[in-house]
């Protein structure tokens, strides 16, 4: 008597679970076979740069690339007529001698502040300190890409 009830109880409990489970299995196997015919997902605009460096890149391309070049090789279209060629930011040997603070200072106060050419103008009144920091961060990424 009690056994019969146990069986009934068990089947009440387990039947829905079984149905649910089998439904999962069936729908899971379904997914593998359907084609997604033309449905696209927006692509990630992938970049290796951090947000800070990206902001720096923006500024670099706007202010610096004219002389230092879009890739930082010092070959911008305006570089040809300069008596002192613009710095090559991809040159690892030169760049490793400069500290972040020095780069920051050159950007902020111009080349003459460190006894270099005045052809590099001071940007301190145009670009804020925190923005110069992003620039420095970006310039540092150029080194590895060069050589």
């Amino acid at each position: 008597m009690s056994k019969r009830i146990l069986i009934i109880l068990c089947s009440i409990f387990f039947t829905p679970a079984l149905i649910w489970f089998s439904a999962q299995v069936v729908s899971g196997s379904d997914d593998d076979h359907t084609e997604r015919s033309g449905f696209l997902l927006p692509q990630k605009h992938s970049t290796n740069l951090t947000r800070e460096q990206l902001r720096g890149k923006e500024l670099y391309q706007y202010y610096c690339a004219l002389c230092h070049g879009r890739t930082g090789k010092g070959d911008g279209f305006n570089s040809f007529n300069m008596s002192v060629p613009p710095a090559d930011h991809t040159d690892a040997t030169v760049m490793s001698t400069l500290s972040d603070a020095q780069i920051h200072q050159v950007i902020k106060e111009g080349g003459s502040s460190l006894g270099r050419s005045p052809m590099m103008p001071p940007w301190g009144r145009v670009i804020s300190d925190s923005e110069i920091n992003t620039l420095v961060a970006y310039i540092r990424t150029l080194v590895t890409s060069g050589k």
């Binding site: 004219l66 002389c67 305006n78 007529n81 003459s112």
Partner: peptide, 19 residues
């Protein structure tokens, strides 16, 4: 020409930068 090096970007009499 010397202190501010304006000729880095500007031309005078066809000499200087082109920005």
């Amino acid at each position: 020409y010397n202190k501010y090096a304006c000729n880095a970007c500007h031309q005078v009499n066809l000499k200087g930068g082109t920005i």
